[in-house]
């Protein structure tokens, strides 16, 4: 008699879905066939031993995972915080430069306003003096640039070109970095 059907029954037995009738058939065959008896015993051993103890993860397992996660989150948060800080710094710089420019242009108005809201005269005139000096500085700077411009027109164009190239490459780079970051987030 071929033994193959009984091998299939043994598989069903291991899967746990053998019927009573099939099991009786299998048992009967095993009693008569030593090859299948050996096979059956080996399978029984295998199943028994495999079912034995599952390994217990170390006690601190969750804590360690959560610690790692926390570090990860912390890192992300820090990165975000840094970026926000940088943006804040740059925008406040720009704002104060703009404010100084406006104050220089309208220095008479600023002075009058200060007098109007009863700021001590000394202090107000100090501020006025400062604004005037900044105005003079702007004047000198602009004439200097104008003067340079007339001499080194070509140089200036070269400079502008260089600066714009550097600027553009920076923008490209940061775009690339952003893309890579996005991708790495996706693959993770």
């Amino acid at each position: 008699m071929s033994c193959e059907p009984f091998e299939i029954l043994m598989m069903k037995h291991m899967d746990g879905d053998i019927t009573d009738i099939e099991y009786k058939k299998l048992k009967k065959h095993i009693d008569e066939c030593s090859t299948c008896k050996n096979e059956f015993d080996t399978f029984e051993n295998i199943c028994y031993e495999l079912k034995e103890p599952l390994i217990d993860p170390p006690l601190a397992f969750e804590t360690e995972v959560m610690k790692k996660l926390e570090n990860l989150n912390l890192y992300n948060k820090k990165l975000k915080e840094k970026r926000i800080l940088a943006a804040y710094f740059i925008s406040s710089m720009l704002f104060s430069i703009l404010a100084i420019c406006i104050a220089v242009i309208y220095k008479e108005h600023v002075y009058n306003f200060m007098i109007y809201i009863n700021i001590p005269l000394g202090f107000a005139s100090n501020i006025y003096g400062l604004l005037e000096r900044i105005a003079v500085f702007f004047d000198i700077a602009s004439t200097f640039i104008f003067y340079l411009n007339s001499i080194f027109v070509d140089m200036l164009y070269l400079l502008i070109g260089l600066v714009s190239i550097i600027f553009m490459s920076k923008i490209y780079e940061s775009a690339q970095v952003a893309k890579v970051r996005k991708n790495s987030k996706k693959t993770v």
């Binding site: 599952l54 390994i55 397992f61 995972v65």
Partner: peptide, 14 residues
Amino acid sequence: FAEIVERYKKLIYN
């Protein structure tokens, strides 16, 4: 997430 780790660590570990 700690609760999820607790529930499935044995399976994953093994």
